[in-house]
């Protein structure tokens, strides 16, 4: 419904419709939180133990980051349709996954599960929002536009990448501490670890390029789009194409 509302709002260009869409998105966020809490209660464990649950949490995180950075001016920049289409496609993908609530395998029975997966997913959520903002930027404002809107999107892009990078760092580090307490080594060059590092290095380069070489706006938007390819491969590709210590994820 939020998706339809967002598209209609974009077509009709009515600010009242955008407000309704934003309200629907907020309701979606609450509904996702309720779903996750219900799974938590039924499974008597954090709902972060498989790809289905982590995807639900990721969508909740994307919306959470959107509302964290929310400004009524942002809705005019075309972000709402992009965000809602992203949510619908992701939910459709999640519906193809096994949604049953299973007890935890021994390796996942740790308090680090919540800390590690939640921080990584919030990181991915923020980087996903940066990707959407970058797409909107490149689609609508590549050849210029109102300075207020381009600045707004460029600022959102940087703030989302900063937040995503920080949470990704925290996620990788909590994973390393967990690995050390479970397997006696904090780093094994497991495919998931390696690709997380690839993603981290890419965003570190992107942030340095912005801060020391002045890569902003279009160039930074392209970096955000490219970086999201690494996020996708680390999150999905590694699970399906490469086997390793994270094969239960």
């Amino acid at each position: 419904m939020a998706s339809l509302g967002a598209c209609a709002a974009e077509y009709l260009l009515k600010s009242s419709t955008r407000r309704w869409t934003t309200a629907l998105l907020f309701l979606s966020w609450v509904a996702l939180a309720a779903n996750l809490l219900a799974r938590w209660q039924i499974g008597a464990r954090a709902p972060l133990a498989n790809q289905y649950e982590s995807m639900l949490f990721l969508l909740w995180a994307v919306l959470g980051v959107f509302f964290l950075f929310y400004s009524s001016k942002l809705s005019f920049a075309g972000l709402l349709p992009a965000l809602t289409v992203f949510l619908v496609v992701s939910l459709a993908t999640a519906s193809l996954l096994d949604s049953s609530i299973q007890p935890l395998v021994p390796a996942l029975q740790s308090n680090w599960l919540l800390l590690h997966v939640a921080t990584v997913m919030v990181g991915y959520g923020a980087l996903s929002l940066a990707f959407l903002a970058a797409l909107v930027y490149l689609w609508r404002f590549k050849k210029g536009g109102a300075a207020s809107q381009t600045d707004l999107l460029d600022g959102l892009l940087y703030r989302a990448i900063s937040l995503g990078f920080w949470f990704l760092t925290l996620g990788i580090l909590t994973g390393a501490v967990w690995a050390n307490s479970a397997w006696g080594t904090y780093w094994s060059w497991d495919p998931k670890e390696t690709w997380s590092l690839v993603t981290w290095i890419f965003y570190a380069i992107a942030i340095h390029l912005r801060r020391t070489r002045g890569w902003r706006e279009s160039r930074f938007a392209w970096l955000a789009v490219s970086g999201f390819a690494f996020v996708l491969f680390t999150y999905f590709g590694v699970n399906y194409l490469l086997s390793g210590l994270h094969s239960y994820a």
Binding site: W189, P191, T194, W195, L197, V198, I201, F202, A204, I205, H208, L209, V238, L242
Partner: peptide
């Protein structure tokens, strides 16, 4: 030099991944 080493490490990690 930071950009050169980072890009090389990135490429190496992709190969190793």
């Amino acid at each position: 030099l930071f950009f050169i080493t980072s890009i090389l490490i990135l490429a190496a990690c992709i190969l190793g991944g």
